[in-house]
Design a binder for these strands. Structure first.
Length: 310
DNA sequence: CGGGTTTGACCTGCGC
DNA sequence: GCGCAGGTCAAACCCG
């Protein structure tokens, strides 16, 4: 299932015009969504997949509502240079990122379970001895996941949302640990994992799980230009392309280098496809160097997003 | 003092 | 059933 050819970004003729029309998803036309929209849950999984340029090629696609397994998408099909051009705003960015998603499913069985445990064990030491009240039959399901590979020296990329780190684990076969973050907004269960590719330490793999059910926080940390940026793009002006890059990662996505997902390699379902992506093609490196002058946005978005390759 | 990070322990899922 | 690895909790700690 992984060998189906996928679309790639085709718009690198003009770095400011990145095609948001990703590969076909079924027979429906591709809607134009912003990443933030997706994260905020304003769309369904199919839309997500489309918005992220994700093809169901590698996956068992099932309806999210019927309790069946969700589709496991492959690495995003991000269009490469040289094809149709839409007038979507893109940002110059020498960082590299690619995306991938994996479908999870409904919610937080683990969390609710934990909550039960905590409440139940409010006897102090006994709380540690969590009771394994787990609803049998309710198989643990996962939120949809979206992964990005970003070339950056900074592990935790600012994306406009506020995150609290709740764990860190060593990753097998990797010298780099994986960090776990949770959105600090109340009632928002979005999580993200950040880890560094051990194959290419300059690449940060960020995996989002879930969808934000709230807007990007208006007030962000002082240096959070990314947040400002994200917020400012929340209501994209149709005249500028019909959609905004409301999320830095989306920008990264837009700036994706071509051929990140290889028809033959990105096919492994789930996260594994991530690790099969390589960013080493000459084409990609060349692309990275195409935007020496990222101007304005450089002032708005932390430098990590525009990190120039040495 | 409140909010975020660190870190060891614990839980869960999965493959063997 | 066991062991491993991933994921999460929560106390302790740090910082503005």
């Amino acid at each position: 299932m992984s060998n189906e050819p996928r679309d790639l970004y085709n718009n690198y003729d003009d770095p400011f015009q990145v095609n948001y029309q990703y590969g076909n998803f079924g027979s429906e036309p591709s809607p134009y969504l912003s990443f933030t929209d997706c994260l905020r849950g304003s769309t369904d999984y199919n839309s997500l997949a489309r918005a992220f340029g994700i093809s169901p090629s590698s996956s068992e696609v099932v309806s999210p509502v019927d309790g069946n397994p969700r589709p496991v998408f492959d690495a995003g099909e991000i269009r490469g240079p040289g094809s149709e051009s839409n007038n979507n705003p893109a940002t110059p960015n020498s960082s590299i990122s690619s995306s991938s998603t994996e479908a999870g499913a409904e919610e937080d069985s683990s969390k609710s379970k934990r909550e039960v445990q905590a409440k139940d064990g409010e006897g102090g030491e006994s709380s540690k001895k969590l009771n394994k009240l787990k609803k049998k039959g309710e198989k643990r399901e996962r939120e949809p996941r979206f992964a990005f590979m970003t070339k950056s020296e900074v592990d935790h990329l600012e994306d406009g949302y506020r995150w609290r780190k709740y764990g860190q684990k060593a990753v097998k076969h990797s010298p780099y640990p994986r960090s776990y973050y949770r959105c600090t907004t109340q009632k928002c269960t979005v999580k993200k994992r950040v880890e560094r590719s051990f194959q290419d330490p300059s690449i940060v793999i960020t995996t989002y799980e879930g969808q934000h059910n709230h807007p990007i926080p208006a007030t962000l940390r002082g240096n959070s230009a990314a947040g400002m940026f994200a917020s400012s793009m929340l209501n994209p002006n149709p005249a500028t392309g019909g959609m905004g890059a409301s999320f830095p990662h989306e920008l990264l996505l837009q700036m994706r280098t071509p051929s990140v997902s290889h028809p033959g390699s990105g096919g492994a379902g789930g996260d594994s496809s991530l690790y099969q992506q390589t960013l080493n093609s000459p084409q990609q490196q060349q692309y990275q160097q195409q935007f020496p002058d990222y101007g304005l946005l450089q002032d708005m978005v932390p430098s990590i997003y525009f990190k120039k390759e040495p």
